[in-house]
Structures are given as structure tokens and as C-alpha cells.
Write a protein that binds this DNA or RNA. Sequence first.
RNA 1: GCCGGGAUGGCGAAAUUGGCAGACGCAGCGGACUUAAAAUCCGCAGGGCUCAAAAGGCCUGUGGGGGUUCGAUUCCCCCUCCCGGCACCA
Length: 885
Amino acid sequence: MSTRDSESAEVINGSDAAPSGGSKGDRPNHERSNDERYDAQIVEKKWFARWQQDATMYAAEPNSAKKKYYVLEMLPYPSGALHMGHVRNYSIGDALARYMWMNGYNVLHPMGWDSFGLPAENAAIQNNTPPREWTLRNIANMKAQMNRLGFAYDWSREVTTCFPEYYRWNQWFFIKMFEQGLAYRKKSNVNWCPKCCTVLANEQVLADGTCWRHEDTLVEQRELEQWALRITKYADELLRDLDKLPGWPDKVKTMQRNWIGRSEGTLVDFKLDYAEPTHTGFGPGGSTITVFTTRVDTIFGATSVQLAPEHPIVKDLAAANPGLRAKVDQLIAEQNKAKETGDIGEIEKHGVPTGRYAINPYNGEKVPVWVANYILMDYGTGAIMSVPAHDERDHEFATKYKLEIRLVILPVADDPEETMAEPQLPFTSHDGMLVNSGPYSGMSCADAIKKMVEYAEKKGFGKPTVTYRLKDWGISRQRYWGTPIPMLYCEKDGIVAVAEKDLPVILPDKVDITLTGGSPLGRVPEFVNAMCPKCGGPARRETDTMDTFVDSSWYFYRYTDASNDRAPFDSKTAQYWFGDAGIDQYIGGVEHAILHLIYSRFWTKFMRDLGLLSNDEPVGRLFTQGMVIKDGAKMSKSLGNVVSPDEMVARYGADAARLYSLFAAPPDRDLDWQDSGIEGIQRFLGRVYRFFVRHPVETQLAKSAALQELSPEARAIQRKLHQTIKRVSDDFQGRWHFNTCISATMELVNALYAYEETVAGAPSPANGGGNAALLAEVQRSLVLLLAPFAPYLAHELWEMIGEKESLLRAPWPKYDAALAKEEEVEIPVQINGKLRSRITVPADAEENFVIERALEDEKVKAAIAGKQVVKKIHVLGKMVNLVVK
RNA sequence: GCCGGGAUGGCGAAAUUGGCAGACGCAGCGGACUUAAAAUCCGCAGGGCUCAAAAGGCCUGUGGGGGUUCGAUUCCCCCUCCCGGCACCA
């Protein structure tokens, strides 16, 4: 699923990092400080080893009475090594998963590999390593990296899409779609990337006409027959159901809306004029041109009809007219070139008259029929009515070719005099009044559209319609490393699906994958030659493979029942985890806003209609994290600003890398990586650790001792603790600003150090009494607050304070409003909105009391001397403002 | 052109409901510890002016301009710049 991973394999090197510290000889003076030093490498290795033996601590509990929570990060393409974007993505998900566990939920938090795809083939060609081998080695390496980073995944549910146990269900789904007419063969102009040597889906071509994997390579147009999935059947539902997704970012929903591109309009038949019979086959009563328009109200201003160069009528006309044909071929060439360079929006408009006329059914007027290079055959009907007065493109074209421009809409203004003023052309507003439009003159645009559509329907020359920009999903790929399409071509029976009992169609191992000469599978006779399941005769296998986006369209259902060999998954189990609303929280990059996130919505609706699911949508809440950048630019090899997670782990530890990626910016914003920043985090972790070393507490103390008789300083710490619990919990519950969760925790630690400084000896449990018990409670809570973000350190401290139960299942600390409440507050006093003084009052002091105190304040007295207080504003606990004259 | 998002110290950022702008961290400066350094701990710190200095005081400040309000980083109008997406889609 990863877009453009070019990082090569790097072996995790955390295990052979140099030991920190560096003191070799006897240096008794520094013994103490060395004991206090936190060595992340040693501590993390210790817990890493334990976690490998106790993987079950992460597993979801299927029969639990707890409430379920499904948190998921987008699965990576196994490119070789994790990059910082992955670390950020997974740190967010892991923190959330751990938090939800600690809050008593039954959490599903799985991981897998989107492991089919082109890079494996390209690597195979370069290094002479089979794609499977290369892929599996990368998976092993990246899994080791994930484990070293301490992400708590339920590996018992691991999904690897290139395994037959998985892709057989791709084939199964495909056959179901074929049976229902949702998968079909289609000959059309398709996007062809000369570097990938394969067809691409529309979604995989970037705005500038380049390939999503090769930004320097323009995609070509080729006419090919290939398999397509009828996603357009769900176009309307895909659009409507976006309204059911309040947990999705507006940005993503807007992008999907634009992509689906629903447009309501009218189809209108223009009869081709037969006054000039020709030998082209269009005699009297000849052919009809159906145009699509969203502005039928402007039809009395139509002064020509424009056809796409590839329109069938143009083909017929050109066939009989070599002069026209040459010009049309020229227009087609211009259009293709513009499509390839992505400049279709800036193409210079050209057109040629066909010499024929069409009849406007509303007024019987004959208008010339032209062919123009800016009309697209694959949108609407490939034919438009041209209204130069009210459409920018038509206006430009008509001006260039001196076609008539006829005003039929006038602007409506408040002032009736202005209404009649001639607008600047083209006047494209929908807010207007019709003129020069026969019986419709005087109507508003909206009314006219209604009446005109009614009339067209009554007379049978037109009807309302809806068109979409969204096209069916072309999924054939002329490459090797993908799911074989389970179809056969039989001379007798034609196109036949592989029998279900014969699934999976296994992707053969030893295949010549050179890029030329069509689909590699076509060169494997054992694969190609098969038997027709209908007649038993010889049949040829389909040799194209599926787009890898098929793999990721339903993988998250497979996690719920990953080893099922009778079905893609068990419906009941999937229903438990998906509920009605889908995945509770999905986290990934915004680059999949269109691709993966629209395909998987489509797949869910298809599976629902198949009876496998009851949810309409796969993802209830979606979070798109920002990019990790450095020196103001996205990390890339060519810029040389790549930060390697392995290096960060080796140098600072996994906790520091994770904590920094959450601390440096709110997760939805881009994160500017600074090496000095992660050093600060390392210092913080050491600071926490040192405090625990200096103040060893037994956790039982926190549970047993009474918390009364606290010194004022201890009471302040208690207050700070509960304020911190509130801030961290609120941010988890609400807006997910982990940076402020972490800074709040830092403040608590700073307060602990200040406490230690102020009250000499007070923190020691040797003092006994309430203060020591409180300190134990604070330290225990601090570990819990850190656990979602820095699991290694948290586990180490948890053990140090004598806790035995699993930290991952320990209950999240409870916030106590009474304990968090300040007794006294400092209130700013403003005079005319400017800060002049501060007074300290009891937190719940009444207004009169506070204002009285403010007026007694020396600085305030000086500021208002000789003036009259005309207004007194008091906001409880916030401020006082005195307005004086 | 259209649709999103953004602009706050030297830097990353915070201010959650209109109420002390700059929490927290980085970089910086000063101090303690040390033979020294590292590490650690403590402190200072938006800009400007005033004051011998300090304390203090005053002015100013959240991209720019206007507005609403006792009070605006926050709400409204206009503008500039940056990032992302879409774009002859009829």
C-alpha cells in the first residue's frame, strides 16, 4: 500500500550498539551518577527478550465480556525497512491501543503485509533474487524492527497478502463479482506506464499525468482489453454514505466527493439534419446526437453542437470524408498528447466543422456540428451543446471561430434597473433570469430547468440524468507478482471462471519476469494450459494479475479470522469486531484518501450485498497523520535528509524515537524532525528514571497508607498529579494531541524535582507517613501515564516499584476533580483591558469579594486614581476587568 | 480557477468555551558540582524603552488591514503568502 518506497533493506542494528556510559576505570567519585544513568539499550533489550516469549500478552480476547475496540494502522508494503513515517503512524496506533487496553477494552491491534507489487519484481530483475524471497526477507526485517520498537501487535493474526491462503480469497471474490456482472472485460483506452510495463488505474495516475510510482514518467494511452470491476454501480452510495462518516476528516471526504464527481444534468437529443442527404449513411431520419448538459436552461443560447473526436458519429462522418478524417486524426493526436502530459486543462482549443447540422429540439433551430479537441469521449455522452454566452470554454471557442454568441440569461439584482443591464460575457452564474428563450423567458434558471426537463420527457427527446467522473476500476496488470486472475478462455465456452474447488490458482514460482513480451505468466505453458471446467476441453488461462489494491481492499476483515480456510472470514467474528460502524480507529497517511480508502469502501458494500457483512462502511473513524519532514522537505534519498529509525533506536532507544515522534507536533500536522529534539526526549526519560532510582518506593505503600496529613508541598504535588491525569486522559479521549499529553507529563516530573528540591528529605519513605505514601502513588501513576508512549521505560519502572500484574492490563489512573482543585487562584486584574496587577483569592471566592480585593490592590488604586470606575467585569476564576473613565 | 489546511519567540510548539500570549521541549546565556570536561541539578530568557545597576515601571507584540466586544491568537469582513487536493467534467 505504500506509495513510493525506495528505501533499500537495512538490517536493524540495535543489537550491536555501542554501550553507553564509557567509564572504564575505577572512578569512585562518579559511581553514584553512573548507577542513576538510564541505559535505554540495556533496559530495552531486556524487555524485548521477555516480550518475545510472552506474545500472548498482546492478543485480543475473542470471548471477552469487555467492550471491543479495533484500532488499526495501514499495513505497510514490505519495501525493506521502516521509515520515520511508519514509526510515527505506528506510535500513534500503539499508544491508542495501549490506552484502550488500560481502560478495560478488548483491543484488536493487528499488523500485516501488503506484499504483492512491482518493487519486488524490479528488485528481482536488478539483484536476480526471486520476488518471493526478496519480499519475505523484507518482511522478516521489518517485523524485527517493529518488535524492537515495542509495538504491541497481535502477531497470531498476521496477514501476508502474497500467500495463497490469502490471495485465494481475492480470486474467490473476483469470481463472485464475475457471476454478478461486477467483473467484466472491457476494451478501452487505458493508462500505460512504460516503466511499470503495465496498465494503471485512473487513481494511480497523478494530476500531472505521471505514474504514481515513477513521477518522472508520463503515462501513455493505449487501447487494451482488460478486466474491470464495476465500482460505478456503487457510485451513488459511495457518495451518499460519506455523510455517515462524521469520524472522517473533511479533507478526505471532499477528495472522495470530487473524485466521484456526481453531476446532475439533462440528456437532450439533437437530430442530425437530413436536409442535405449524403452517402454517409445518414439519410432522412438519420442519426441522433445526444448531448449532456447541466444547464439545459441555456439551450436557447446553443449556437453549435460539439463532438469529441472519438465520437462514433465523427468516425462515420470521417470514414466518408478523407479531408475531415485527417483533421479529426489531428485533433485526436492533440488530445492524447495533452492527456499524456496532464495538460488536458490547458489544451489549446481546436475544432473543425463537419459541414452537418443538428436540430435544437426546443426551437427547431439548425446549428452547425463541430468536432473539438476539448470534448472528452469518456465523460457524459461525448457531445455537448455549445452556449458561448454562458460557458467559459464555449465562449473561448466561439470567439476563436467566430460562432454566434447569444445572450439568454440575465443577472438578477436587487435593483430592477440593473437586472436589464447586459452582463459581462461569459455570464456563467446559475442565478439569473431567462431571456430570448421562447416560452421560458422570464423564468429563473432553476424553474426553467424543471419546466424544460418536463417538456423534454413529454416529447421524448430528453430526460434528467446523473453522470459521474468515477470510472470502473481496471484491475488487470501485465506483471508477475500479484494475484492470478482466476479466469479461463475456452474455445467452445468462451470466458469461464475457474471452479471454486480449484482455488487457489497458484502463482507459479519460477517465472521469467523480464519486462518485455507481455505478461510473464504467458511464458509458463504449465500455467497457461488448463482444462475448461464446463466442457473438459483445453482452455487458456488468463495471464494478467490483479492490481494490488485488491489485496488491501478487504484485508482488515481477514485479521478477525486470519487462518480460516473455508471462507475469507467468519461473518459473526467480523461482525463482533466491526460492529455497525466499522473499525473504531484507522490510522494512516492521507495519500490513500482516494485509492485504498475508496476501493475498500466499495469492497465492503459488495461483501455486504453478498451477505457476508452487516456494516455498510469499513472504517468508522479515520485519522490521517502528517508527514515526517526534515529541513522543510519530505525525507528522500535524493535530498539526503533521510533519518533512519534503526539509527535512532541504536542511538537513543525505541522509547525516545516513539516519544519524540509524538511530542514534536500534533499528529495531524507535518513533523519537522530535529535530532536535537530527540536528545531532549532522551534527557526526559533519563530524568524520570533517575527520580525512581533516587526515591525507591514500594507500590504497596500507595495502596495501604492513608493520604491525610499531607504537607502543603505534598498536597500541591497531589493536585498536580490529578491535573495531569485529566489533561492526558482528555487529550486521548478528544483531540489526540499527544504532544500536550507528553508535555503535561513533563510538567509533573518537573514538579516532582521541584518538590524534592524544596522539601529536603521529604520524598523518602523513611520519613514514613502520608507524604511517602503520596509519593508512591504519584510515581505509580506516572508509570501508568507513560505506558502508552514509552512502554520500555514504563515496564522497567513498573518492575522497580514492585508491581507484578501486566502493565498492559493495569487500569488507567482515575482523575479526582476534588483533589485536582486549586485552593487559591491568582487572578489578573485589568484596567480597560490592560493587565495592571494580580491578586490571590480563594478559588471559589464570590464576585463582590474578588472585586473588592481588586479595588484594594495598591497598583490598581494607583492606576484608577482620579478616575471613575464605570464597569466591573468578573469571570469566576479567570480575571477581573475594571473599565474606568 | 475551485475545495481543504496553515501562518504565534532564534526553532518545534502551547493557550480545549472570547479572559494573564509563548506552557513543554530544542538551541542560547548564567550559576552549582568537577582539576577540567561530559553528565546532572538550579536559574534567566518575545521585542523595545526607562533606570548607574537591580528591583520595578512604561510601550509594543500571534502574516497584513478593518470590524464586533469591557476584553480577540480565538468570532465576522477584506487582503497577502505557504502546503495539499481537484480542474476544459459540459
